[in-house]
């Protein structure tokens, strides 16, 4: 009984993860500019990785494999946002600006720059 439950949870988790990854990839193709695509990549890095590794962990049970999967997940959860921040910061320093900022934000953007 427990076995079936764990299998079901694992399959559900893998399915949700795969769905999030497909949506994120679709967003990377579909969204209009770099600054919005970053958020689509963020979905892959967090929800996609989290759910897929959770599903695999449920399959593996309490073994060394689960520990390795946990290591991979923790590692990606630490480096993922760091890499995303590095890319965003590099683009920002290269004066790449979001298209269609809501309202009159261009002024805000530059005032933020001067303060630094």
């Amino acid at each position: 009984m427990i076995g079936i439950l764990v299998q079901g949870a694992s399959w559900l988790s893998l399915g949700i993860g795969a769905a999030f990854i497909l949506i994120g990839a679709l967003g990377i193709i579909r969204l209009p500019d770099f600054w919005s695509r970053i958020h689509a990549a963020g979905i892959i890095d967090t929800a996609g990785v989290g759910f897929i590794t959770l599903g695999l962990m449920l399959q593996a049970g309490f073994t060394l494999i689960t520990l390795k999967l946990l290591l991979i997940a923790v590692f990606i959860f630490i480096t993922g946002p760091t890499a995303t921040h590095a890319i965003a910061n590099a683009a920002f320093a290269a004066r790449l600006r979001p298209f269609a900022l809501a309202g009159d934000e261009s002024g805000t953007f530059d005032s933020g720059k001067k303060k630094s």
Binding site: I21, I28, V49, I52, T53, L56, L96
Partner: peptide
């Protein structure tokens, strides 16, 4: 269109490769 789009895409590609290798193993 820009360099940063490409770096972002390659980074996401690498993350997916990690997941693919793991899932392939299972």
């Amino acid at each position: 269109p820009t360099l940063y789009d490409r770096v972002l895409a390659v980074n996401a590609f690498g993350t997916l490769t990690v997941l693919l290798i793991g899932t392939m193993g299972f």
